[in-house]
Design a protein around this nucleic acid. Structure first.
Lengths: 145, 145
DNA sequence: TATTGTTATACTCTATAACTATA
DNA sequence: TATAGTTATAGAGTATAACAATA
């Protein structure tokens, strides 16, 4: 409560995190664009390549309304990257799943993300460990997601 | 070049950064929505509250096409948060500047961003210093922006 | 009745291209 | 000619509300 939040050190850290965020998004969108995918499409494809899931679940993951997912999956389906399957246990549900081409694209997308490389490559294993522990502390329970 | 990037430690750090990014955007959009602003509008307003600038410069900062800035500033202007002023030294240029109401909104927006608080409050000054130095190293020259 | 996914609608952001007024 | 800003257009993401099929 009485903690000071506007000291120069805290402000600089916040600023640095902002730069990290900007760089992260920039690289993600760039990697997606190389496959002619928008950021949202790439996120859904990446999500489904981990595990197929109902439309509703995708909306929860994206923190958006379910009606939006229809269009995003439509566009991925048109390009043959994703398909809709019936759920045997509940006929209301449609399971979105990547096709083989979709899985391949997701893999290339992941490999194309060099955010993991350049920036972290400059840090030693010890430094990365310290960074990991600080980020874990910063994020609290969220880090387990 | 020969650096290993897929070791568990690096992957975990990348994952944690992804969580930071998600949390950052979530809080930013939430703070903006409390003032009925979109993310883009809030970003432009925050930018102008630092310093008025030509439309073209805003586009560079947002990394988008100049034509998009017209609409974003239009909507901010309609709400009385921003105004366009002529540039005495070049009559082609329009300087976008926040109104008093705009400056006030930008200030409230900044105060509403508790990303700086909760997460970093758990870290000591020493830990924040270590985090700052690691982030600086990670970002290289970009950190000076 | 409640839930899943969809459709319809409207708004915002985005890039592209063409236009205007200045330089 | 080149540049700053705008307009026009089209595609994509977003929320809201209403709908059909299923539970």
């Amino acid at each position: 409560m009485a903690t000071e939040h506007s000291d120069p050190l805290t402000l600089e850290v916040v600023g640095l995190i902002g730069t990290v965020v900007a760089r992260y998004y920039e690289e993600y969108d760039h990697a997606a664009a190389e496959h002619s995918l928008t950021g949202a499409q790439a996120r859904v494809l990446a999500l489904l390549s981990i595990r197929p899931m109902p439309m509703r679940r995708i909306a929860q993951k994206l923190k958006c309304e379910p009606s939006n997912v229809t269009g995003i999956v439509d566009r991925l389906e048109t390009r043959g990257l994703v398909e809709r399957r019936p759920d045997p246990s509940d006929r209301r549900v449609k399971l979105a799943a990547p096709t083989e081409k979709g899985r391949q694209t997701a893999r290339q997308l992941r490999d194309g993300l060099n955010f993991a490389r350049e920036p972290l490559a400059d840090l030693s294993v010890e430094e990365r460990t310290v960074l990991r522990d600080l980020l874990r502390r910063m994020l609290g329970d969220d880090a387990e997601e």
